[in-house]
């Protein structure tokens, strides 16, 4: 019996040891390093282990607070738009089509696996001064001079982020909607609830967990977006991701960049808690 127990432990170690070590070394340790760095500082291009809260104090300046605030606003806006755009699609896929379900589902998900760099770049072609949209507007005689706020603006960043992350919203919502018991919906209809009332009072509340997860899946990467604002944001639309990247790639201020990153993670954590609480199906215990 003891031998068997030992064998069990050996086998468990064989299976769980390597992945734990790997993730411990390449995920936990780096994140811990980042936390440490955020309390250190840089002197003459050298990182000094000099415990300080100065990096967090710098974050509290209007400059960085402003960028954080605008990033949160953009990320929330992207999340809301994704929800409005994506909900009907998920609903249609899950409940209204049988014949095209597979193909449509795959089509919705495929872009999610394509490079977001390429998808961002595509918007440069569309929104630029000589881009497709401006050419169309000028061709139709709607404007003489190219519309310049299309690219390098909050508009461009928001549009591209919606484009990139809307499948992230649709997928988890679809999974929830698909599992809804059709008998429940039938019953609601039989009880005299119209189509709308059934949707509002039965389907929508039951689908909230899916909405919450979808929102989170959109909010998280939008909050940390770097490639998209960097390429489409220009001078007028700075997001915190670019500022973080700058601390590591340009300013050599790892401590400040680390403090910013931890703050982003904290915001994500708060958002996750709020989203998931809001998404708890009615009637479940807290």
């Amino acid at each position: 019996m003891a031998a068997r127990k030992t064998r069990q432990i050996a086998a468990a170690t064989a299976f769980l040891g390597p992945p734990s070590l790997w993730i411990g070394a390449l995920f936990i340790l780096p994140m811990a390093t980042m936390a440490l760095l955020s309390f250190w500082r840089v002197v003459d291009y050298n990182i000094v282990a000099d415990w300080t809260l100065a990096n967090y104090e710098r974050l509290a300046r209007p400059l960085y607070l402003g960028i954080f605030w605008r990033t949160i606003k953009i990320a929330l806006l992207v999340t809301v738009i994704c929800a409005l755009v994506g909900y009907p699609v998920a609903y249609f896929l899950a409940r209204k089509t049988k014949r095209f379900q597979l193909i449509l589902l795959v089509l919705v998900i495929l872009p999610l696996w394509t490079s977001y760099l390429v998808r961002t770049y595509a918007w440069m072609l569309i929104l630029g001064t000589n881009g497709a949209v401006n050419q169309a507007l000028q061709g139709l005689g709607l404007t003489d001079t190219p519309v310049s706020w299309l690219l390098y603006s909050d508009f461009a960043v928001t549009l591209a982020l919606v484009h990139i992350y809307v499948p992230f919203f649709i997928l988890p919502l679809y999974a929830v909607l698909e599992k809804l018991d059709p008998r429940l919906l039938e019953a609601a209809k039989d009880l005299g609830g119209g189509r709308w009332r059934t949707f509002l009072h039965v389907t929508l509340p039951l689908s909230l967990p899916g909405v919450a997860t979808g929102c989170l899946f959109v909010f998280i990467p939008s909050m940390g977006a770097f490639v998209t604002p960097e390429l489409l944001g220009g001078a007028r639309s700075i997001m915190i991701g670019s500022v973080v990247a700058q601390q590591f790639g340009v300013a050599y201020d790892y401590p400040l960049g680390s403090a910013m990153s931890l703050t982003i993670l904290a915001i994500i954590l708060v958002a996750a808690t709020l989203f998931l609480r809001a998404g708890r199906p009615a009637g479940t215990a807290p």
């Binding site: 291009y45 590591f248 790639g249 300013a251 050599y252 790892y254």
Partner: peptide, 12 residues
């Protein structure tokens, strides 16, 4: 594409 980037990358 900037002197700062050169410094940061060398140092990093």
């Amino acid at each position: 594409s900037s002197s700062d980037e050169m410094m940061a990358k060398l140092r990093g």
